[in-house]
Design a protein around this nucleic acid. Structure first.
Lengths: 216, 216, 216, 216
DNA sequence: CATGAATGAGGGTTCATTCAT
DNA sequence: CATGAATGAACCCTCATTCAT
C-alpha cells in the first residue's frame, strides 16, 4: 500500500467513490431513500448501475457511507470552532452561520433521511453484522455534534452569560431544534433562504430564550 | 340518505374506513410511505388487502385521507381554543399541551411523512385530477394550524405582552419549530416523553425568546 | 310449474335474465370478453354485480347464453325465409338484407367474440362439463346458418342459375365471407353503414362471382 | 454506432427483441391480448418476465411493435410485387398466393387482434403520447396494404380487364374481404388449409365477380 | 331475490442485485 | 474495472366470485 502505484490507485478509487456519494446526496435529498433509484444515482455519477457495486456493497452501504461523510463534515467543522474564547453570542453565531451557510443543503439531507430511515437503521439493527463499522462512525459523529451544542451552553453558563433555569441538556436540545426548524422550513419551501438573515433572527430569539446577559 | 337504513349503512362504512385509517396511521408512521405495504395495513385493520379498495381508490388516496384526517383533528382542536381571553402564556400553554399530549403521536406521523412525501404530493402535482378535493382539504388544514400560531403571537403583541423586534410571522415560525423540534426528538427517541414537562420547558424558553412581559 | 303463480314468476325471471343479456350484448360488443367487467354489465342492466349470479352461474355462462340467443335469432329468421320460391337473386337479396339490416349489430357481436374467445370455448373444452347444453345449442345454430347458405347455393344450381365450377360448399363459404367482410368493415369503421346500399353492392359482385345467369 | 463493437451489440439486441416478438406472436395469436400473460411470452422467448422490460416498455408496446412488424412484412412484400406488368389475373394470383402462403399465420394474428384490441388502440387514443411513433408506423402499413389492393383494381380497369360497375374502392374492399374471409375460416378451423387451392378458388370467384375479360 | 362487502388469485411493473463479457 | 443484460422478489391493483344480511 506504500508504493506509489498502490497509492495512486487508491486515490483514484476514493475519488470515484466520492463522486458516487456526491450523486447519492443529490438523489437521496430529492427523493428520499426508497424513491431514490440506483439508476438515478449511477446516472448522476456518470457510472452504470452495476458499477456502483464495485464501490459499495449495497444500497444501504451507500446511504450509510453518505450519512457518515456528511455528518462528519459537520462535526469536523464544529470541532474547529473555538468555544472557550470570545463572547458566546459570537460562538453561537459562528455555529449557526456555519451550519446554515455551509452545510445547509447537506444537513438538510440528513434531516430528511433520519426521519424515515435512520431510525430503522440505527435501531432495528437490520444492518448490524453488515455495517457495524459505519454505524459506529455515525454514532460518533452524532455525539460530536450534540456535544458541541452542549459545550456552547455550558461555557455560556460558566461565564455567567445565561442564568436560565433550564438544564444545559434542555437548552442544547432547543438549540438543535431551532436549527433543525430552520432547515426543515427550507426543505418544505424547497429553497435555502438567506443564511445570514436566518442566523440573525434565530440569534435574537435564542439570546432571549436562553436568558443571555443583556449586553448586546 | 335520510332513511335509517342508509344512515346505519353509511355509519358502518365510515367506521370501517376509519379503522383502515387507524391501521394506516400505525404502518405509515413506522415505515414511511414507500415501505408501508398495503398488506400490512390490511392486516392491522383486520381486512384483506383487496378490501381496502372498497374504501380508498389507491394507496395515495389512503395516505392523503389519513393526512387530512389527522391534520384536521389538530386544526379542529386548535380552533376551539380561546385566543382572545386569558393570558397569552395560558393560551400558548394550552396549545402546546394539547398538541403534545393529545396529538403527539398523530402529529408525529404528519411530521414524518411530510418530510419525504408530502412535498412531492403537494408540489409535484402528480396527484392532481385524482385527489383534488383531498388536496384542497389538506391545504385548508395546513393553513388553519399556521393561522392559529400567527393569531397567538399577534394577540400577544396587541396586548403588549411581547415587544420582540421579530415579526409575527417569524415568531409564529419559531413557535412551530419548537413544537416540531419536540415531536421530532420524540420520534428519534422512539418514545413520547412527558408532555407536561415538555410543555413547561418550551414555555420557559418561549416566554423569554418572545420577550414576554416579566410577570410570570 | 303449471300454476299461475309459478308461471308469473318464471316470466318475470326470464324477463330479467333477458335484460341482463341485453346489457351483456352492449358491453361485450364494445369491449370484448375480457375487457367486459361484470360491473359494467350489471350497471347497464340495472342490477348489482352480485345479482347477476342469480341468473347465470358465471361469466362464461352469460357469454355463452348470449351467443346462443343471438345466433338463434339469426337462424330463426333465416329459416323463415322461403328458399324454394322466387329468383335466387331475390333469395340472396332477402338473406343479405335481413342479416345486414336486422342483425347487423348483433351479428357483429358474434363476429367479434368468436374471434378470440369462441374458439377457445368451442375447442379447448375448458367449459365442457359446465355448459354442455349451451354448447350443443350454439353448435346447432351455427349449423343452421351455414346450412341456409348452402341451401341457397344448391337451389340456385338446381334451377340452373349458376354454373360455377366451384362446389356448393365453397360458394356458400364465399357468401359467408362476403357477409362477414361487410360486418367486419363496419366494426372496424365503428359504424353500421347503409344496409341497402351494401346489399346492392354485394349482390352485384356475388351474382357475377357465382356465375348467375345473366338475366338481371 | 459506427464502430464494430456497437454494431455487434445492436445486432444482438435486435435479435433478442425479435425473439421476443416471435414468442409474442405465438402467445397473442393463441390467447388474444388480455389472456396472453407476459410470463408465457417470456417463457416462449427463453427470458424471464422482467427481462422483457429491457426491450419493450410495457405490454402495449410489445403488442404494437409486433403488429407493426407483421403488417410491415406484409406491406413490404406487397410493394415488391410488380403491378404494371403481366395479366392482372397474374397479379392478383401473386398477391393472394403471397398472403395466403407466406403470411397466412401472421396475418391471421393481425386479423385476430384487430378485432378486439386494435380498434381500441387505434381510436381510443389511450396510448397516444406513449406510442406515437409506433402508431404512425402502423397506420402507414395499413395504408400501404389497402393501397396495393386499390392499385390492383385500378390497373385492371385501366387495361380494360374489368368493366365492373362497382367503384375501385368497393372492389378493393371486396378483395380484402375475400382474403380476410379465408384467413378467418382458417382461424376458426384452427388449421391453415391449402394455400394454392384456396388461391385458385378465390381467383375463380374474383375474376367473375370483377367482370374480368373472359380470356382465362 | 337483491346487494354491499370481502377476498383469493393473478397480472403488470419496478428495482436491487448478480453475472458474463 | 465497467457495463449491458438477466432475474427474483415484491408490490400495487383488478376482478370474478362468494357470503351475510
Amino acid at each position: 500500500m506504500q508504493n506509489p502505484r498502490s497509492i495512486r490507485e487508491k486515490t483514484v478509487r476514493d475519488a470515484k467513490a466520492g463522486l458516487i456519494l456526491d450523486a447519492a446526496l443529490q438523489v437521496f435529498s430529492q427523493k428520499g431513500f426508497h424513491d431514490a433509484r440506483l439508476e438515478d444515482i449511477a446516472a448522476a455519477a456518470g457510472f452504470s448501475k452495476a458499477s456502483l457495486y464495485n464501490y459499495y456493497e449495497d444500497k444501504d452501504a451507500m446511504f450509510l457511507s453518505l450519512a457518515v461523510r456528511e455528518y462528519q463534515r459537520v462535526a469536523d467543522r464544529l470541532e474547529k470552532l473555538p468555544v472557550g474564547e470570545g463572547t458566546f453570542e459570537e460562538n453561537i453565531k459562528a455555529t449557526l452561520s456555519m451550519i446554515f451557510s455551509v452545510f445547509g443543503e447537506h444537513f438538510s439531507f440528513l434531516l430528511t433521511l433520519s426521519n424515515f430511515r435512520m431510525m430503522n437503521i440505527l435501531s432495528l439493527g437490520k444492518l448490524e453484522g453488515h455495517h457495524e463499522q459505519r454505524l459506529e462512525d455515525l454514532h460518533q459523529s452524532f455525539f460530536l455534534v450534540e456535544e458541541h451544542f452542549r459545550k456552547l451552553v455550558a461555557t455560556a453558563r460558566d461565564k455567567g452569560e445565561t442564568q436560565s433555569e433550564l438544564s444545559d441538556d434542555v437548552l442544547a436540545g432547543f438549540l438543535g431544534s431551532m436549527i433543525r426548524g430552520v432547515l426543515f422550513d427550507w426543505k418544505l419551501k424547497g429553497t435555502m433562504g438567506d443564511a445570514e438573515e436566518e442566523t440573525r433572527r434565530v440569534l435574537v430569539f435564542l439570546k432571549k430564550g436562553m436568558d443571555f446577559a443583556q449586553r448586546s
